[in-house]
Design a protein around this nucleic acid. Sequence first.
DNA 1: GCCAACGTTGGC
DNA 2: GCCAACGTTGGC
Length: 154
Amino acid sequence: MGHWLMKSEPDVFGIDHLAARPGHTEPWDGVRNYQARNMMRDQMQPGDQAFFYHSNCAEPGIVGLMEVAAPARPDPTAFDPEAKYFDPKSDPENPRWYLVDMRLLRHLARKITLAELRAYADGPLADLPLLRRGNRLSIMPVTLAQWDFILSLE
DNA sequence: GCCAACGTTGGC
DNA sequence: GCCAACGTTGGC
């Protein structure tokens, strides 16, 4: 089973938005980065778990746990001229963008902030992409050791 | 709001 | 294939 970290801006789609969805499940659409797409399309499997990370907000951090609810599929918003993330170069016959459906497992008992994670950047979290300078990946792999360590902070 | 870092685009 | 220009991300 794989482990991941997925960013979302709480003002746009935060953990409470996910909690309010039917089945606590939502298509993780709008990802328009090839590295992130490749991870969703090629590596993420149903049952994989992911941290829900709030980005671009006053206190960024991990706020919940999710699981992959269904295998990757083409992102339909790429085909919709009305959609914010419409991409005319994505052809339904040869889709450019993919998504996975994510289900909320639970909120964390407390937010584990980016500042707190940084305290371990020279230790157990040395290789966590989130802590690398200039990191902009919205989806990234987390090793089992990193996963367990972060959860132990809760 | 600022701005560093990064990915993408497109001219050549 | 190079690389400058541009747009976006995201912490602060």
